[in-house]
Design a protein around this nucleic acid. Structure first.
Length: 520
RNA sequence: GCUCCGGUCGUCUAGCGGUUUAGGACAUCGCCCUCUCACGGCGAAGAUCGCGGGUUCAAAUCCCGUCCGGAGUACCA
């Protein structure tokens, strides 16, 4: 039988990195096994429904490159793929009736207030909380009909057999044993007629012929209900795979407090999907060998449920940054520029940096103030429109000095502004040196002599000065010149840099630095 | 409280009874390359495998206990 897995988010908010990983595992597993990956929307809770959330989930998954064989956006043989629509089609009612008929479920007419009271009583008496039967598990048929006739609202609960053990086979952890006397009777159908997750997801998993339920470990405690439900229907249980959670630096489940968890925030920060996928896959999974850098094809080829880790993993953004820089360095400059321009043009990039919120702050120090990032990125875009070859040449020089796309704004800035801002310390240290006026004049003279704009030519100009002055080291020649051209003490190799800038810019900047210098 | 899960360098992990002086990667530090910063190369430091008992000729690896951490405990998913 072919493998079928599903990713089943509820549209209650944004897609965060923990959910993304589950989706990734689903996707990789399906691809590796030649099976199908299904997207199902679990929108059974109207009170928590967030408009647009489904759209963002699909969009985000699309951005990362996780494709589904079936789902609300692409259709499929088991449609509909939204539980609200499946409810309308009567799918759950039909199955709940069957379960009641078989005696595995019953109607319970307790009011929410009564249940609250029960819970409080149990807490005070230090008992396990939950509904273990109450007035309705074993109520007479007359009592039930009477309540129904009175028009009392009711829920349908699963009848958990008592005095037994339930064994749940978790693919990662192995056998997990539960005593049914500790399992309360869960609600399967709410008073509003909507099914709960416990019911809807399992019915759908069976109907959609899901072979492996891959989900977060927060579901382990409810796994016995689910397993039992399959048994009660007489259905074959799927394989349960409970993935460990991704936690923050403090060991707690990843949440707002740990900075951005929204996947799109990583896109806006300039992380590449290849790096993000690679990184996310490696939290809680390993290919079993010593590879760390894996392309999507590598991931698919290597993916095996057996490599899944039972213990929770921390999200280490430094490693993500390293991986991202690695991916950037591996791209051809031309492709990188396309990716960078697409990133800058993306509406979400603008939205993110314009409405930057402190709570989105990544747990690392950004290269510049958030306010300036967008401005600098857009400078790249307009420069590329005017002269793509120039931007490409500049990009090449910074490619290995950057870890995220956002950092290109800062790194490339001096290429595009006529008067780069001068670092005061750099000016103080290098432009004040005694030989500098002569050096700058030398450069200007040589520029006037020849129009050649190659790396070698610039090198010969500066090395010419070095031997002219009999300087032992190249530093005193190179550093003041770099400061004059870029305003900074770091950056690409000077001769390469000059070749990119060209005669005109070099001359202008040297003259500016000379003026600057006389001000000192 | 009850139930369940987890626990190898700071972090992600390899390991699944002997080939292990516990391997790799990120981060850190040093050296090399070099005009700076990066990249790259080389190297160092860093884990008595949570702790305590067993089983065994032999345990990170199996068993028991214990501690710590986490999750669930809703007519949420």
């Amino acid at each position: 039988m072919s493998v079928r897995v599903r990713f089943a988010p509820s549209p209650t908010g944004l897609l965060h990195v923990g959910a993304l990983r589950t989706a990734l595992y689903d996707y990789l597993f399906a691809r590796r096994q030649g099976g199908q990956c299904i997207l199902r929307i679990e929108d059974t809770d109207r009170t928590r429904y967030v408009e647009d959330s489904e759209r963002e989930i699909i969009q985000t998954l699309g951005w990362v490159g996780i494709e589904f064989d079936e789902g609300p956006h692409v259709g499929g043989p088991f449609a509909p793929y939204r539980q609200s629509e499946r409810k309308e089609a009567g799918i759950y009612q039909e199955h709940i009736d069957e379960l009641i008929r078989m005696g595995h479920a019953y109607k319970a007419f307790d009011t929410p207030e009564e249940l609250d009271e029960l819970r409080q009583f149990q807490q005070i008496n230090k008992q396990a909380t939950g509904y273990f039967g109450g007035d309705w598990r074993d109520a007479s048929a007359e009592k039930v009909t009477e309540a129904e006739a009175a028009g009392k609202p009711c829920v349908v609960r699963q009848r958990i057999p008592r005095g037994q053990k339930v064994l749940v086979e978790d693919f990662i952890r192995g056998r997990i044993e539960f005593d049914t006397d500790t399992l309360p009777d869960p609600v399967l159908l709410k008073a509003d007629g909507m099914p709960t997750y416990h019911f809807a997801a399992m019915v759908d998993d069976h109907l959609m012929e899901i072979t492996h339920i891959v989900r977060g470990e927060e579901w382990i405690s409810s796994a016995p209900f689910h397993a039992l439900l399959f048994d009660q229907f007489g259905w074959e249980r799927p394989v349960f795979v409970h993935c460990s959670t991704i936690v923050g630096a403090d060991g707690k489940k990843l949440s707002k407090r740990h900075g951005a968890t929204r996947v799109l925030a990583y896109a806006a920060e300039g992380f590449l999907k290849a790096a993000l996928k690679n990184f996310i896959a490696l939290i809680g999974w390993s290919p079993g060998d010593e590879r760390e850098v894996l392309s999507e094809e590598d991931l698919v080829a290597a993916f095996d449920l057996k490599g899944l880790q039972a213990s929770p993993g921390k999200f280490d953004i430094e490693k993500l940054r390293w991986l991202n820089g690695h991916v950037i360095r591996q791209m051809s400059p031309d492709r990188l520029l396309n990716v960078l321009l697409a990133y800058i043009a993306h509406p979400y990039t603008t939205e993110y940096w314009t409405n930057f919120e402190e709570e989105n702050r990544m747990p690392y120090k950004p290269p510049v103030e958030e306010k300036l990032i967008l401005e600098r990125l857009q400078r790249i875009a307009s420069a590329a429109e005017a002269d793509r070859a120039y931007v490409l040449a500049a990009l090449k020089e910074e490619q290995e000095r950057v870890q995220t796309l956002a950092e290109f704004g800062e790194a490339l800035e001096f290429f595009f502004v006529e008067e780069p801002s001068m670092d005061a310390k750099a000016v103080d240290k290098w432009l004040t040196q005694e030989h500098v006026p002569e050096l700058f004049q030398w450069i200007l003279d040589k520029l006037a002599e020849s129009k050649v704009e190659t790396v070698e030519h610039y090198e010969s100009i500066l090395k010419g000065f070095q031997s002219h002055r009999g300087l032992e080291k190249l530093g005193p020649v190179v550093h003041p010149t770099r400061v004059a051209l870029t305003g900074k003490t770091f950056g690409p190799g000077l001769f390469e840099l000059m070749a990119v800038l060209g005669h005109e810019r070099v001359e202008r900047r040297i003259r500016r630095a000379m003026a600057f210098q006389s001000d000192v």
